[in-house]
Write a protein that binds this DNA or RNA. Structure first.
Lengths: 250, 250
DNA sequence: TTGTGAAATATGGTATATCGCACTTGGCCG
DNA sequence: CGGCCAAGTGCGATATACCATATTTCACAA
């Protein structure tokens, strides 16, 4: 058994910090060995990606503010490489923009861009909603209705951030029912692009109306009435867009 | 002033190969300093990305065949890092798939996936065509007609590969007329996903029909008739899909 | 001959080092 | 007093090093 010879391949340089592959970012309090089965096979790049994605969606990263790879890396306690790859991934989804000098930033929103996004969302999410009507199982309906109840409660409690997060989850459960590996990433990318601005600017007078449209859409989905559900989702996207656009003016 | 100590940062290790940033991949025979002004500010990652994208589109990379990062890197004469990033970028666009072990491959095509792609393309490219009708300038029309002539000639000459390449260029000129930073990347991603299979399987009996639809669409665009143009593009996508699907059966 | 397991190999992921550019800063000259 | 040049600093891009795991190969024994 020459294994003892092989295990320590090389003398191992002194100042090396192997840094265990998991849980570098996930600060979930691992209770001993339980962690082994949990996030075992998550690459750092994927963890950083998830974090940044959520940071973009929740508006933690302000639009226009440049983000430095090294800064993020040191903030997250990793080397620049996983951060670079996560940022590239987000850039491919248009969640962030690569600046001429190479650093990245959440893109600024202009009226033109927002209107472009809105018309695209109308077409794609409208289509997706109509498709979803044919794929809704009773279990999915229940899931959606449960989420709607939560969203409604969050609306009453006034927690806009959580409201939007759960609202997104609800929508995505609907879209996921289609089981379309083509549509889903497109819709995710669209939400990543408009999401930050919802978080920054959505306010009460509009939320209630949006909720009523969602409810109408859910009821239509329950009946399997795709065109009707589509109509309500389109109305929601369209009027929410009007609202955001009215804020972009000033 | 301890600066003098700092300026020559370190003695510079002997065996270092700085490897000029450009033209590592571009084997265009640089004639001396002329190269300086040419591809100056292209990162390696971007060059690798372009190459791989074209390799995927033209079917050079066979679906399912795993691509090793290191293999590509040494084939291209770079380190693995730019290759990794280019592959991640392509993976985000669904042009390649990250395998469970971390390497990547062009995804296999199944009937289900192809039908999913087709219905999505019908909606998105149909919409895009209709929009384009409102944005076509005389110059764009001329450009498209010029490309159509080339495509037609290539069809007669029987060079399917070049035919498809120019055909794509023609379509993208139309879509680009919309000037939609949202739609364009989506359409590109869709073409990256279906492109390889066109290259592998398109054959004569279908090409002529497809060309006639394209011509009809172009004429409709010229008249500014968006719905009509949309109809022809949709018919093209739909019937080309039928054709490919008939091949996927066997 | 074949199955099993261990070593060799290949490969992905990531840390570190270094290059070269870009932007900043400070000083000098007009 | 203002603008321009030069050093300095920060950062992105990339090469290299090295670990850990997946895969292959090969030897040995049943």
């Amino acid at each position: 058994m020459a294994e003892a010879l092989k295990s320590p391949r090389r003398p191992r340089r002194a100042g090396r910090q192997p840094r265990s592959r998991q849980s570098v970012l996930g600060k979930a309090g691992d209770s001993g060995l339980a962690a082994l089965g949990r996030a075992s096979r998550q690459t750092l790049q994927a963890q950083v990606y998830d974090r940044l994605k959520s940071a973009v969606m929740t508006g933690v990263l302000a639009p226009g503010q440049p983000v430095s790879i090294r800064g993020l890396a040191s903030a997250l306690g990793t080397s620049p490489i996983p951060v670079r790859e996560a940022l590239r991934h987000l850039a491919a989804e248009r969640a962030v923009e690569v600046q001429p000098n190479g650093s990245v930033a959440v893109p600024e929103m202009t009226r033109a861009r927002f209107e472009d996004l809105r018309r695209t969302r109308l077409v794609i999410e409208g289509f997706a909603t109509e498709l979803a009507a044919a794929s809704m199982t009773p279990a999915t309906i229940r899931r959606v209705e449960g989420l709607f109840a939560q969203v409604d409660a969050l609306h009453r409690s006034g927690d806009v951030k959580k409201f939007l997060a759960q609202n997104q989850r609800m929508r995505f459960v609907i879209y996921q029912a289609i089981d379309s590996p083509t549509l889903m990433p497109i819709i995710e990318s669209l939400w990543l692009q408009v999401g930050p601005f919802f978080n920054l600017s959505m306010a009460e007078p509009h939320l209630r109306r949006s909720l009523s449209y969602d409810l109408a859409a859910i009821n239509a989905l329950k009946r399997g009435d795709g065109p009707e559900a589509r109509k309500w989702i389109e109305r929601d996207i369209s009027e929410t867009g009007d609202y955001i656009l009215s804020l972009l003016k000033g």
